[in-house]
Design a protein around this nucleic acid. Structure first.
Length: 475
DNA sequence: TGTAGTTTCTG
DNA sequence: AGAAACTAC
């Protein structure tokens, strides 16, 4: 039972943090600071509740770093970060009671299992006389505020994004709160290290640590670096994996270390033009994915287009493993898969090429690829990941048509013309001349290096196989 | 944010 | 001959 407190006693406000691991532009935290009394932050590691998708290994690695940074930042504000593990429906009310909280605030989430948990927690807290307030923080547009004239939700990106833009400028970001010198009373907390979010025995995380700095400061630096060049050339170079033309903000956005509102206005305050529009459109795809997931909670497991349910995917563990390990013999695909394994990230263009190879050339179920990305990407996002895989498969909303099959050789020649990207991740190919770098099997004895494998699939043959198989889909 | 095969244009 | 345009998948 939460006591109303002695008359005049200032009540604690509990802020339940989830996918919003930042102190700036955090509406729930900000609102808590406007109240009298202490503020306590809570993070719950919940792998147990029904319908919750446990984090992949790369995401767990990231979470550790992000919580570490967040704990420091909150401590500097005089806000303790309390860590608890277990079912949110029980853990959150228990923490609220222990903190003698008069109010619990959080920023909304949009997965169906998560939203159901949040509704139940709200009910329980309200029954205990605890005030609950929730805020919009993670998406520019609440998924239910955008509605097409007909149908339950948008299925095509362009009209969706047009409707979003018609809603006007997103709100301005909030600054950092300042709430020092309010005494919170001490609450039991888990020790982060005990959660064992980071690998121990074989520590595969070296490449992640080289590449990333989880946390709000790392996010801000990444955004500043990206905007320093004024976005110049983004539209032209964003498809070039051999250039540093993309923002690499995805994992920071995923964990809410930076908000889309901050990104939006940072971009808007710069030079307007095609580069800025193009980049903001990428935020739009993120919004679209969440719009789709909100209206289709099983997006990660069920074909958006039902006619794909009948499709006979190939069961081929050997090829799947070759793909996962970057040993398909197709340089562009292997470079991407190795970049992913090493750094927890893959360039967007290469994601499309690697996914297309798995789905179309190998004809392996897109869910296998989605699951691998979920485990290995630091930006693994519950909406973006399945929406994008279904996009490539052709089973999704506004998806690429079945006959759009990427040729990894042509894609390589177009977007990695000197093979710099491929050579970075596939060192066996170092000695192959530029002309042959994306098709070393044709280089003969002069070229292909060491123990680099022969292609596990003939691109032409498997393309024709996919075309005829997908053509047989009903409708 | 497709490819491949074919036709048509151009120097 | 090679680019550009066109079209089916």
């Amino acid at each position: 039972m939460i006591s109303a407190g002695k008359p005049g006693q200032k009540e604690t406000t509990l802020v339940w943090l989830r996918d919003d691991l930042r102190i700036r532009d955090n509406p729930a935290l900000h609102a808590a600071t406007l109240r009298d009394g202490a503020v306590v932050a809570l993070y719950v590691l919940d792998d147990e509740s029904d319908g919750i998708r446990p984090l992949g290994a790369a995401s767990r690695w990231w979470l550790h770093g992000s919580l570490e940074r967040l704990g420091d930042a909150l401590a500097a504000l005089g806000v303790p970060l309390v860590l608890r593990r277990g079912r949110s429906r029980e853990v959150v009310p228990a923490a609220a009671i222990a903190a003698n909280a008069g109010a619990v605030y959080w920023n909304r989430r949009y997965g169906s299992a998560e939203a159901a948990i949040d509704r139940d927690v709200e009910t329980t807290l309200t029954e205990h006389g605890c005030a609950v307030e929730t805020f919009a923080a993670t998406l520019l547009h609440e998924p239910w505020t955008l509605r097409p004239a007909s149908g339950p939700h948008y299925r095509v990106f362009s009209p969706f994004w047009k409707a979003a833009l018609d809603q006007g400028e997103p709100r301005k970001p909030l600054g950092a709160p300042d709430i020092r010198n309010r005494r919170a009373f001490p609450l039991d907390t888990d020790v982060l290290a005990d959660w064992k979010l980071r690998p121990t025995r074989p520590d595969w995380s070296g490449g992640l640590a080289e590449t990333w700095r989880p946390g709000e400061e790392g996010a801000r630096d990444r955004l500043e670096d990206f905007l320093d060049g004024g976005l110049e050339g983004y539209a032209a170079n964003r498809d070039r994996p051999d250039c540093h033309a993309t923002s690499m903000l995805s994992p920071h956005l995923r964990f809410g270390e930076i908000s889309p509102f901050q990104v939006w206005h940072a971009v808007r305050s710069g030079e307007p033009g095609n580069d800025a529009e193009k980049f903001l459109t990428e935020l739009g795809w993120r919004e679209f994915s969440w719009h789709l997931l909100f209206h289709n909670p099983d997006l990660a497991s069920v074909n958006f287009q039902k006619k794909f349910d009948a499709f006979a995917w190939r069961d081929d563990r050997t090829s799947l493993e070759a793909w996962q390990r970057g040993r398909t013999g197709i340089p562009m695909v292997d470079a991407g898969m190795r970049q992913l394994w090493h750094s927890g990230w893959m360039h967007n263009r290469v994601r499309m090429v690697a996914a297309s190879f798995l789905i179309k050339n190998l004809m392996i179920d897109w869910r296998e690829g989605e699951a691998w990305f979920w485990d290995t990407l630091v930006d693994a996002d519950a909406a973006n990941n399945p929406a994008s895989w279904q996009w490539v498969a052709g089973s999704g909303a506004d998806a690429a048509p079945y006959f759009r099959i990427f040729n990894p050789v042509l894609q390589g020649e177009k977007f990695d013309p000197e093979g710099r990207y491929v050579r970075t991740w596939v060192p066996e190919l170092e000695g192959v001349p530029d002309r042959m770098i994306h098709k070393p099997w044709k280089a003969g004895a002069s070229g292909s290096g060491g123990d680099y494998p022969q292609p596990i699939a003939d691109l032409g043959e498997t393309r024709r196989r996919a075309l005829s198989a997908f053509k047989d889909l009903p409708g």
